[in-house]
Design a protein around this nucleic acid. Structure first.
Length: 426
RNA sequence: GGAGAGGUGGCCGAGUCCGGUUGAAGGCGCUCCCCUGCUAAGGGAGUAAGGGCCCAAAAGCUCUUCGUGGGUUCAAAUCCCACCCUCUCCGCCA
Protein backbone atom coordinates (compact mmCIF):
# COMPACT_ATOMS: atom_id res chain seq x y z
CA UNK A 1 0.00 0.00 0.00
CA UNK A 2 1.04 3.56 -0.37
CA UNK A 3 2.78 5.35 2.47
CA UNK A 4 0.19 7.02 4.69
CA UNK A 5 2.78 9.46 5.96
CA UNK A 6 3.69 10.47 2.44
CA UNK A 7 0.01 11.08 1.76
CA UNK A 8 -0.19 13.23 4.89
CA UNK A 9 2.91 15.20 4.02
CA UNK A 10 2.10 15.74 0.36
CA UNK A 11 -1.58 15.08 -0.27
CA UNK A 12 -1.68 17.10 -3.49
CA UNK A 13 1.34 15.30 -4.92
CA UNK A 14 0.03 11.82 -4.14
CA UNK A 15 -3.41 12.61 -5.45
CA UNK A 16 -1.97 13.99 -8.68
CA UNK A 17 0.10 10.84 -9.12
CA UNK A 18 -2.85 8.51 -8.53
CA UNK A 19 -4.92 10.63 -10.89
CA UNK A 20 -2.39 9.89 -13.65
CA UNK A 21 -3.73 6.35 -13.58
CA UNK A 22 -7.17 7.65 -14.25
CA UNK A 23 -8.19 6.65 -10.73
CA UNK A 24 -10.64 8.55 -8.59
CA UNK A 25 -8.82 10.29 -5.74
CA UNK A 26 -11.92 10.54 -3.57
CA UNK A 27 -10.81 7.61 -1.41
CA UNK A 28 -7.60 9.47 -0.59
CA UNK A 29 -9.56 12.40 0.77
CA UNK A 30 -11.55 10.04 2.93
CA UNK A 31 -8.30 8.53 4.19
CA UNK A 32 -6.89 11.93 5.07
CA UNK A 33 -10.00 12.89 6.94
CA UNK A 34 -10.24 9.59 8.81
CA UNK A 35 -6.54 9.71 9.61
CA UNK A 36 -6.82 13.13 11.25
CA UNK A 37 -9.71 11.98 13.40
CA UNK A 38 -8.01 8.69 14.20
CA UNK A 39 -4.90 10.37 15.51
CA UNK A 40 -6.95 12.64 17.70
CA UNK A 41 -8.87 9.71 19.17
CA UNK A 42 -5.70 7.67 19.66
CA UNK A 43 -3.99 10.53 21.42
CA UNK A 44 -6.88 10.98 23.81
CA UNK A 45 -6.98 7.22 24.37
CA UNK A 46 -3.26 7.11 25.16
CA UNK A 47 -3.58 9.91 27.69
CA UNK A 48 -6.34 8.01 29.47
CA UNK A 49 -4.34 4.81 29.38
CA UNK A 50 -1.38 6.59 30.87
CA UNK A 51 -3.51 7.79 33.73
CA UNK A 52 -4.89 4.31 34.34
CA UNK A 53 -1.40 2.88 34.45
CA UNK A 54 -0.28 5.54 36.90
CA UNK A 55 -3.21 4.83 39.18
CA UNK A 56 -2.62 1.09 38.98
CA UNK A 57 0.93 1.61 40.07
CA UNK A 58 -0.24 3.65 43.03
CA UNK A 59 -2.74 0.99 44.00
CA UNK A 60 0.00 -1.59 43.73
CA UNK A 61 2.15 0.49 46.05
CA UNK A 62 -0.63 0.75 48.60
CA UNK A 63 -1.15 -3.00 48.53
CA UNK A 64 2.51 -3.51 49.20
CA UNK A 65 2.40 -1.20 52.17
CA UNK A 66 -0.63 -3.03 53.48
CA UNK A 67 -2.89 -0.04 52.96
CA UNK A 68 -5.17 -1.73 50.47
CA UNK A 69 -8.18 -0.24 52.18
CA UNK A 70 -7.10 3.23 51.07
CA UNK A 71 -7.19 2.29 47.42
CA UNK A 72 -10.89 2.32 46.76
CA UNK A 73 -11.07 5.97 45.60
CA UNK A 74 -8.30 5.38 43.12
CA UNK A 75 -9.93 2.20 41.89
CA UNK A 76 -13.19 4.04 41.43
CA UNK A 77 -11.49 6.76 39.41
CA UNK A 78 -9.68 4.20 37.29
CA UNK A 79 -12.87 2.31 36.59
CA UNK A 80 -14.42 5.51 35.23
CA UNK A 81 -11.38 6.13 33.08
CA UNK A 82 -11.69 2.59 31.78
CA UNK A 83 -15.13 3.39 30.36
CA UNK A 84 -13.69 6.42 28.58
CA UNK A 85 -10.80 4.37 27.28
CA UNK A 86 -13.07 1.77 25.75
CA UNK A 87 -15.02 4.40 23.83
CA UNK A 88 -11.95 6.19 22.54
CA UNK A 89 -10.25 2.93 21.59
CA UNK A 90 -13.31 1.79 19.69
CA UNK A 91 -13.39 5.04 17.77
CA UNK A 92 -9.72 4.81 16.92
CA UNK A 93 -9.97 1.15 15.89
CA UNK A 94 -12.95 1.76 13.66
CA UNK A 95 -11.17 4.60 11.88
CA UNK A 96 -8.03 2.51 11.54
CA UNK A 97 -10.03 -0.28 9.94
CA UNK A 98 -11.66 2.17 7.57
CA UNK A 99 -8.29 3.58 6.55
CA UNK A 100 -6.77 0.14 5.98
CA UNK A 101 -9.80 -0.95 4.01
CA UNK A 102 -9.48 1.97 1.64
CA UNK A 103 -5.71 1.95 1.45
CA UNK A 104 -5.57 -1.73 0.53
CA UNK A 105 -7.50 -0.85 -2.59
CA UNK A 106 -5.56 2.24 -3.59
CA UNK A 107 -3.01 1.43 -6.31
CA UNK A 108 0.65 2.33 -6.19
CA UNK A 109 1.94 5.75 -7.12
CA UNK A 110 3.39 5.65 -10.65
CA UNK A 111 7.06 6.57 -10.96
CA UNK A 112 7.86 10.02 -12.33
CA UNK A 113 9.48 8.44 -15.38
CA UNK A 114 6.36 6.43 -16.13
CA UNK A 115 4.84 7.85 -19.33
CA UNK A 116 1.48 9.58 -19.29
CA UNK A 117 -1.44 7.86 -20.91
CA UNK A 118 -4.89 6.49 -20.40
CA UNK A 119 -4.73 2.95 -21.68
CA UNK A 120 -2.75 0.38 -23.56
CA UNK A 121 -2.76 2.42 -26.77
CA UNK A 122 -0.62 5.03 -25.01
CA UNK A 123 2.14 2.63 -24.04
CA UNK A 124 5.52 3.66 -25.38
CA UNK A 125 7.32 1.23 -27.65
CA UNK A 126 10.90 1.31 -26.40
CA UNK A 127 12.30 -0.96 -29.10
CA UNK A 128 11.39 -3.68 -31.54
CA UNK A 129 13.83 -6.47 -32.28
CA UNK A 130 13.81 -9.12 -34.98
CA UNK A 131 10.44 -8.19 -36.38
CA UNK A 132 10.24 -8.13 -40.16
CA UNK A 133 6.70 -7.43 -41.17
CA UNK A 134 6.96 -8.78 -44.69
CA UNK A 135 9.67 -11.29 -43.94
CA UNK A 136 7.60 -14.23 -42.79
CA UNK A 137 7.06 -17.16 -45.10
CA UNK A 138 3.81 -19.01 -45.52
CA UNK A 139 5.04 -21.95 -43.50
CA UNK A 140 5.42 -19.60 -40.52
CA UNK A 141 1.95 -18.21 -40.91
CA UNK A 142 0.28 -21.23 -39.36
CA UNK A 143 -1.14 -20.67 -35.87
CA UNK A 144 0.34 -22.89 -33.20
CA UNK A 145 -2.94 -24.60 -32.39
CA UNK A 146 -2.92 -25.94 -35.93
CA UNK A 147 0.75 -26.85 -35.82
CA UNK A 148 0.16 -28.46 -32.45
CA UNK A 149 -2.58 -30.67 -33.78
CA UNK A 150 -0.71 -31.48 -36.96
CA UNK A 151 2.39 -32.62 -35.11
CA UNK A 152 0.58 -34.12 -32.14
CA UNK A 153 2.32 -31.89 -29.62
CA UNK A 154 -0.61 -29.91 -28.26
CA UNK A 155 -4.03 -31.35 -27.41
CA UNK A 156 -6.44 -28.53 -26.78
CA UNK A 157 -9.51 -30.73 -26.97
CA UNK A 158 -8.39 -33.21 -24.39
CA UNK A 159 -7.25 -30.38 -22.18
CA UNK A 160 -10.81 -29.11 -22.30
CA UNK A 161 -12.16 -32.61 -21.74
CA UNK A 162 -10.15 -32.91 -18.56
CA UNK A 163 -10.57 -29.47 -17.11
CA UNK A 164 -12.64 -27.25 -19.36
CA UNK A 165 -11.83 -24.65 -21.95
CA UNK A 166 -8.59 -22.71 -21.60
CA UNK A 167 -6.89 -25.69 -20.05
CA UNK A 168 -4.48 -27.39 -22.40
CA UNK A 169 -2.47 -30.55 -22.58
CA UNK A 170 0.95 -30.69 -24.15
CA UNK A 171 1.86 -34.04 -25.61
CA UNK A 172 5.05 -35.76 -26.70
CA UNK A 173 7.61 -33.32 -28.06
CA UNK A 174 5.34 -30.47 -27.02
CA UNK A 175 5.52 -31.54 -23.41
CA UNK A 176 9.27 -31.91 -23.70
CA UNK A 177 9.46 -28.40 -25.13
CA UNK A 178 7.60 -27.11 -22.08
CA UNK A 179 10.08 -28.66 -19.74
CA UNK A 180 12.99 -27.53 -21.90
CA UNK A 181 11.78 -23.94 -21.76
CA UNK A 182 11.52 -24.10 -17.98
CA UNK A 183 15.00 -25.48 -17.53
CA UNK A 184 16.41 -23.05 -20.04
CA UNK A 185 14.72 -20.23 -18.14
CA UNK A 186 16.16 -21.36 -14.84
CA UNK A 187 19.67 -22.31 -15.86
CA UNK A 188 20.50 -19.10 -17.67
CA UNK A 189 19.73 -17.06 -14.56
CA UNK A 190 21.29 -19.35 -12.00
CA UNK A 191 24.44 -17.22 -11.96
CA UNK A 192 22.68 -14.51 -9.98
CA UNK A 193 19.25 -15.75 -8.93
CA UNK A 194 18.74 -18.36 -6.24
CA UNK A 195 16.40 -21.11 -7.30
CA UNK A 196 13.40 -21.66 -5.07
CA UNK A 197 10.44 -23.99 -5.24
CA UNK A 198 7.61 -22.49 -3.18
CA UNK A 199 4.14 -23.90 -2.54
CA UNK A 200 1.50 -23.09 -5.12
CA UNK A 201 -1.36 -22.93 -2.65
CA UNK A 202 -1.16 -20.03 -0.24
CA UNK A 203 -3.08 -18.30 2.53
CA UNK A 204 -5.13 -15.17 2.15
CA UNK A 205 -2.47 -13.02 3.83
CA UNK A 206 0.05 -14.16 1.28
CA UNK A 207 -2.16 -13.11 -1.61
CA UNK A 208 -2.87 -9.80 0.08
CA UNK A 209 0.77 -8.84 0.41
CA UNK A 210 1.34 -8.67 -3.32
CA UNK A 211 -1.85 -6.75 -3.95
CA UNK A 212 -3.78 -9.65 -5.52
CA UNK A 213 -6.31 -9.45 -2.72
CA UNK A 214 -8.72 -8.01 -1.83
CA UNK A 215 -9.18 -6.18 -5.10
CA UNK A 216 -8.69 -9.03 -7.55
CA UNK A 217 -10.26 -11.97 -5.77
CA UNK A 218 -12.31 -12.87 -8.84
CA UNK A 219 -9.17 -13.54 -10.85
CA UNK A 220 -7.85 -16.21 -8.52
CA UNK A 221 -8.82 -19.79 -7.79
CA UNK A 222 -9.90 -20.26 -4.21
CA UNK A 223 -10.15 -23.57 -2.39
CA UNK A 224 -13.09 -22.90 -0.14
CA UNK A 225 -12.72 -25.87 2.16
CA UNK A 226 -9.15 -25.12 3.15
CA UNK A 227 -9.24 -21.40 2.51
CA UNK A 228 -6.23 -21.53 0.24
CA UNK A 229 -5.57 -19.68 -2.98
CA UNK A 230 -3.85 -21.05 -6.08
CA UNK A 231 -1.07 -18.64 -6.93
CA UNK A 232 -1.39 -16.66 -10.17
CA UNK A 233 2.40 -16.24 -10.24
CA UNK A 234 5.43 -17.20 -8.14
CA UNK A 235 5.64 -13.51 -7.31
CA UNK A 236 3.04 -14.22 -4.63
CA UNK A 237 4.95 -16.71 -2.47
CA UNK A 238 8.33 -15.17 -3.21
CA UNK A 239 7.24 -11.70 -2.12
CA UNK A 240 5.86 -13.11 1.11
CA UNK A 241 8.95 -15.16 1.86
CA UNK A 242 10.33 -12.37 3.96
CA UNK A 243 7.02 -11.22 5.36
CA UNK A 244 7.40 -9.56 8.76
CA UNK A 245 11.15 -9.95 8.55
CA UNK A 246 13.97 -7.46 8.82
CA UNK A 247 16.74 -8.14 6.31
CA UNK A 248 20.34 -7.01 6.62
CA UNK A 249 21.42 -4.49 4.04
CA UNK A 250 24.38 -6.76 3.25
CA UNK A 251 21.89 -9.37 2.00
CA UNK A 252 20.42 -6.97 -0.54
CA UNK A 253 19.77 -7.16 -3.35
CA UNK A 254 18.31 -10.58 -2.70
CA UNK A 255 17.64 -12.18 -6.06
CA UNK A 256 15.39 -15.21 -6.33
CA UNK A 257 13.82 -17.25 -9.07
CA UNK A 258 11.21 -19.95 -9.10
CA UNK A 259 9.47 -22.22 -11.51
CA UNK A 260 5.85 -22.82 -10.58
CA UNK A 261 2.51 -23.51 -12.08
CA UNK A 262 0.36 -20.41 -12.23
CA UNK A 263 -3.41 -20.30 -12.09
CA UNK A 264 -5.66 -17.55 -13.38
CA UNK A 265 -9.41 -17.49 -13.72
CA UNK A 266 -9.21 -14.78 -16.38
CA UNK A 267 -12.60 -13.68 -15.15
CA UNK A 268 -12.80 -10.46 -17.12
CA UNK A 269 -11.58 -11.86 -20.39
CA UNK A 270 -13.98 -14.69 -21.23
CA UNK A 271 -14.10 -15.22 -24.95
CA UNK A 272 -11.05 -13.12 -25.72
CA UNK A 273 -7.84 -14.65 -27.08
CA UNK A 274 -9.10 -18.10 -26.26
CA UNK A 275 -7.49 -19.95 -29.12
CA UNK A 276 -4.68 -22.32 -28.34
CA UNK A 277 -2.21 -21.01 -25.85
CA UNK A 278 -3.04 -17.34 -26.10
CA UNK A 279 -4.74 -17.33 -22.72
CA UNK A 280 -4.91 -20.33 -20.42
CA UNK A 281 -6.00 -20.95 -16.86
CA UNK A 282 -2.95 -22.92 -15.85
CA UNK A 283 0.58 -22.45 -17.08
CA UNK A 284 4.21 -22.80 -16.10
CA UNK A 285 6.50 -19.90 -15.59
CA UNK A 286 9.95 -19.04 -14.35
CA UNK A 287 9.76 -15.89 -12.29
CA UNK A 288 12.65 -13.62 -11.35
CA UNK A 289 12.23 -11.55 -8.22
CA UNK A 290 14.34 -9.31 -6.05
CA UNK A 291 14.26 -7.50 -2.76
CA UNK A 292 16.42 -4.37 -2.88
CA UNK A 293 17.17 -1.11 -1.16
CA UNK A 294 15.56 1.90 -2.87
CA UNK A 295 18.96 2.82 -4.34
CA UNK A 296 19.46 -0.59 -5.92
CA UNK A 297 16.02 -0.80 -7.48
CA UNK A 298 16.72 0.85 -10.82
CA UNK A 299 19.74 -1.29 -11.53
CA UNK A 300 17.95 -4.51 -10.64
CA UNK A 301 14.95 -3.48 -12.69
CA UNK A 302 17.23 -3.13 -15.68
CA UNK A 303 18.85 -6.46 -14.89
CA UNK A 304 15.59 -8.39 -14.82
CA UNK A 305 14.47 -6.73 -18.03
CA UNK A 306 17.77 -7.52 -19.74
CA UNK A 307 17.58 -11.16 -18.68
CA UNK A 308 13.98 -11.62 -19.72
CA UNK A 309 14.73 -9.96 -23.03
CA UNK A 310 17.86 -12.02 -23.70
CA UNK A 311 15.95 -15.24 -23.06
CA UNK A 312 13.57 -14.35 -25.88
CA UNK A 313 16.31 -13.05 -28.16
CA UNK A 314 18.36 -16.22 -27.78
CA UNK A 315 15.39 -18.30 -28.90
CA UNK A 316 15.42 -16.39 -32.17
CA UNK A 317 12.06 -14.77 -31.55
CA UNK A 318 10.91 -11.30 -32.53
CA UNK A 319 9.78 -9.08 -29.71
CA UNK A 320 9.14 -5.55 -28.62
CA UNK A 321 9.45 -3.76 -25.34
CA UNK A 322 6.79 -1.42 -24.04
CA UNK A 323 7.07 1.17 -21.33
CA UNK A 324 3.60 1.00 -19.80
CA UNK A 325 1.83 4.31 -19.39
CA UNK A 326 0.31 5.33 -16.07
CA UNK A 327 -3.17 4.34 -17.18
CA UNK A 328 -2.16 0.79 -18.09
CA UNK A 329 0.13 0.12 -15.15
CA UNK A 330 -0.68 -2.83 -12.92
CA UNK A 331 -2.22 -2.03 -9.58
CA UNK A 332 0.90 -2.59 -7.46
CA UNK A 333 3.50 -1.34 -9.89
CA UNK A 334 5.28 1.99 -10.06
CA UNK A 335 6.89 1.27 -13.43
CA UNK A 336 6.55 -1.66 -15.79
CA UNK A 337 8.17 -2.77 -19.01
CA UNK A 338 6.28 -5.40 -20.94
CA UNK A 339 7.99 -7.77 -23.30
CA UNK A 340 5.76 -8.89 -26.12
CA UNK A 341 6.83 -11.69 -28.39
CA UNK A 342 5.63 -11.81 -31.97
CA UNK A 343 3.79 -14.95 -33.01
CA UNK A 344 3.73 -14.97 -36.83
CA UNK A 345 1.15 -17.74 -37.13
CA UNK A 346 -1.40 -16.09 -34.92
CA UNK A 347 -0.07 -12.73 -36.15
CA UNK A 348 -0.21 -11.29 -32.68
CA UNK A 349 2.07 -9.68 -30.14
CA UNK A 350 1.88 -11.76 -26.99
CA UNK A 351 2.84 -10.46 -23.57
CA UNK A 352 5.41 -12.83 -22.14
CA UNK A 353 6.87 -10.78 -19.31
CA UNK A 354 5.89 -7.83 -17.20
CA UNK A 355 9.00 -6.50 -15.56
CA UNK A 356 7.86 -4.36 -12.70
CA UNK A 357 9.24 -2.18 -9.99
CA UNK A 358 6.80 -2.06 -7.09
CA UNK A 359 8.74 0.48 -5.06
CA UNK A 360 7.76 -0.14 -1.41
CA UNK A 361 4.10 -0.85 -2.19
CA UNK A 362 4.19 -4.62 -1.80
CA UNK A 363 6.88 -4.59 0.85
CA UNK A 364 4.80 -2.31 3.02
CA UNK A 365 1.86 -4.70 2.75
CA UNK A 366 4.11 -7.66 3.45
CA UNK A 367 6.04 -5.72 6.10
CA UNK A 368 9.46 -6.56 4.69
CA UNK A 369 12.11 -4.21 5.99
CA UNK A 370 15.87 -3.93 6.11
CA UNK A 371 18.40 -2.33 8.39
CA UNK A 372 20.32 0.37 6.50
CA UNK A 373 23.97 -0.23 7.33
CA UNK A 374 25.39 2.31 9.74
CA UNK A 375 22.01 3.83 10.52
CA UNK A 376 19.62 3.03 13.25
CA UNK A 377 16.12 1.94 12.59
CA UNK A 378 14.65 0.13 9.65
CA UNK A 379 13.37 0.99 6.20
CA UNK A 380 10.94 -0.71 3.87
CA UNK A 381 12.57 -2.67 1.03
CA UNK A 382 11.66 -2.41 -2.62
CA UNK A 383 10.45 -5.40 -4.62
CA UNK A 384 10.83 -6.08 -8.32
CA UNK A 385 9.96 -8.96 -10.53
CA UNK A 386 9.37 -10.18 -14.02
CA UNK A 387 8.88 -13.41 -15.88
CA UNK A 388 12.16 -14.96 -16.85
CA UNK A 389 10.22 -17.27 -19.07
CA UNK A 390 6.47 -17.82 -19.39
CA UNK A 391 5.93 -21.14 -21.10
CA UNK A 392 2.75 -21.14 -23.18
CA UNK A 393 3.17 -17.99 -25.18
CA UNK A 394 6.85 -18.58 -25.74
CA UNK A 395 6.01 -22.12 -26.74
CA UNK A 396 3.53 -20.72 -29.26
CA UNK A 397 6.00 -18.23 -30.66
CA UNK A 398 8.75 -20.84 -30.94
CA UNK A 399 6.49 -23.27 -32.74
CA UNK A 400 5.22 -20.67 -35.18
CA UNK A 401 8.50 -18.86 -35.78
CA UNK A 402 10.58 -21.96 -36.26
CA UNK A 403 8.15 -23.98 -38.29
CA UNK A 404 10.00 -25.30 -41.33
CA UNK A 405 8.71 -25.65 -44.89
CA UNK A 406 8.33 -29.39 -44.24
CA UNK A 407 6.00 -28.72 -41.33
CA UNK A 408 8.39 -29.70 -38.55
CA UNK A 409 9.56 -27.25 -35.93
CA UNK A 410 13.27 -26.53 -35.64
CA UNK A 411 14.42 -26.50 -32.03
CA UNK A 412 16.40 -23.35 -31.23
CA UNK A 413 20.00 -24.18 -30.42
CA UNK A 414 19.92 -23.28 -26.71
CA UNK A 415 16.97 -25.58 -26.08
CA UNK A 416 18.50 -28.67 -27.65
CA UNK A 417 20.39 -29.83 -24.58
CA UNK A 418 17.08 -29.89 -22.77
CA UNK A 419 15.34 -31.69 -25.66
CA UNK A 420 17.57 -34.75 -25.54
CA UNK A 421 19.57 -33.22 -28.37
CA UNK A 422 16.65 -33.09 -30.78
CA UNK A 423 17.08 -30.54 -33.57
CA UNK A 424 13.47 -30.67 -34.64
CA UNK A 425 10.03 -31.54 -33.36
CA UNK A 426 7.67 -33.40 -35.59
C1' G B 1 -7.06 -39.20 11.49
C1' G B 2 -5.60 -40.58 17.17
C1' A B 3 -2.51 -39.08 21.59
C1' G B 4 0.69 -35.64 23.87
C1' A B 5 3.90 -31.18 24.33
C1' G B 6 4.59 -26.26 23.30
C1' G B 7 4.27 -20.96 21.18
C1' U B 8 8.33 -15.09 25.44
C1' G B 9 13.26 -10.08 22.38
C1' G B 10 18.29 -11.51 16.50
C1' C B 11 18.81 -16.70 18.77
C1' C B 12 18.62 -19.92 23.22
C1' G B 13 15.99 -19.66 27.55
C1' A B 14 13.77 -17.96 32.84
C1' G B 15 9.31 -15.99 34.53
C1' U B 16 3.20 -18.26 34.25
C1' C B 17 1.01 -22.59 39.91
C1' C B 18 0.68 -17.65 44.37
C1' G B 19 -1.51 -10.99 38.79
C1' G B 20 1.52 -5.36 40.90
C1' U B 21 6.99 -0.21 38.73
C1' U B 22 8.98 -7.02 34.25
C1' G B 23 9.75 -4.56 27.59
C1' A B 24 10.69 -8.76 30.42
C1' A B 25 16.48 -12.62 34.51
C1' G B 26 20.55 -15.34 32.52
C1' G B 27 23.29 -16.97 28.30
C1' C B 28 24.73 -16.60 23.10
C1' G B 29 25.31 -13.39 19.10
C1' C B 30 26.23 -8.39 17.46
C1' U B 31 28.28 -3.03 18.08
C1' C B 32 31.61 0.32 20.48
C1' C B 33 35.55 1.13 24.08
C1' C B 34 39.74 -0.67 27.24
C1' C B 35 43.63 -4.13 27.73
C1' U B 36 47.09 -7.32 25.06
C1' G B 37 53.56 -8.16 19.72
C1' C B 38 49.10 -10.28 16.34
C1' U B 39 45.11 -13.56 17.23
C1' A B 40 42.62 -15.89 21.13
C1' A B 41 41.31 -14.95 26.10
C1' G B 42 39.84 -10.94 29.57
C1' G B 43 37.36 -6.16 31.36
C1' G B 44 33.51 -2.23 30.49
C1' A B 45 29.22 -0.13 27.99
C1' G B 46 25.36 -0.72 24.59
C1' U B 47 21.88 -3.82 21.76
C1' A B 48 13.48 -5.10 19.88
C1' A B 49 9.84 -3.27 16.66
C1' G B 50 5.80 -0.18 15.64
C1' G B 51 2.31 4.18 16.32
C1' G B 52 1.46 9.29 18.16
C1' C B 53 3.19 14.06 20.18
C1' C B 54 7.25 17.55 19.92
C1' C B 55 10.99 19.01 16.49
C1' A B 56 15.34 22.08 11.64
C1' A B 57 17.61 17.84 13.86
C1' A B 58 19.05 15.27 18.08
C1' A B 59 17.02 14.50 22.56
C1' G B 60 12.57 13.92 25.06
C1' C B 61 7.35 12.44 26.36
C1' U B 62 3.68 8.71 25.59
C1' C B 63 0.98 4.34 23.84
C1' U B 64 1.11 -0.74 21.77
C1' U B 65 3.41 -5.58 21.28
C1' C B 66 5.35 -12.08 25.58
C1' G B 67 1.04 -16.87 18.92
C1' U B 68 -4.15 -14.31 17.61
C1' G B 69 -8.81 -12.50 19.33
C1' G B 70 -12.05 -11.77 23.39
C1' G B 71 -13.05 -11.69 28.88
C1' U B 72 -12.03 -10.85 34.39
C1' U B 73 -9.38 -6.84 37.25
C1' C B 74 -7.58 -0.51 39.64
C1' A B 75 -3.64 -3.57 37.26
C1' A B 76 -2.51 -9.51 32.88
C1' A B 77 3.49 -12.62 29.83
C1' U B 78 1.01 -14.39 34.40
C1' C B 79 -6.19 -15.90 35.65
C1' C B 80 -10.67 -17.48 32.20
C1' C B 81 -12.70 -18.57 27.10
C1' A B 82 -12.21 -19.32 21.83
C1' C B 83 -9.14 -19.81 17.79
C1' C B 84 -4.46 -20.31 15.00
C1' C B 85 0.22 -22.37 14.49
C1' U B 86 4.54 -25.54 15.56
C1' C B 87 6.78 -29.96 17.36
C1' U B 88 6.87 -35.32 19.06
C1' C B 89 4.76 -40.32 18.94
C1' C B 90 1.13 -43.69 16.51
C1' G B 91 -1.72 -44.58 11.97
C1' C B 92 -1.95 -43.66 6.67
C1' C B 93 0.80 -42.23 2.48
C1' A B 94 4.17 -40.04 -2.77
Amino acid sequence: MIDLRLLRRDPAGVKAAIARRGEDTGPLDRVLEADARQREAAEARDRVRNEIKTISREVGGLHKEGKADQASDLQERSRALGVEEVALAAESDALLAEIADILLRVPNVPADQCPDGADQSDNVVVRVEGYDKGGYSDHQRVPHWEVGEELGILDVERGAKLSGSMFVMYTGGGATLCRALVQYGLDRNADAYREMRPPTLVRTETMTSTGHLPKFADDAYHLERDDLWAIPTAEVPLTSLARDEILEEADLPMKLMAHTSCFRREAGSAGRDTRGLLRVHEFDKVELLAYTTPDQAAEVHADILARAEAAILDLGLAYRILDLCAGDLGNSSARTFDIEVYAPGADQWLEVSSVSWFSDYQARRANVRYRPAGEKGTAVVHTLNGSGLAVPRVWAAVVETHRQPDGTVAVPEPLRPYMRGAAAIG
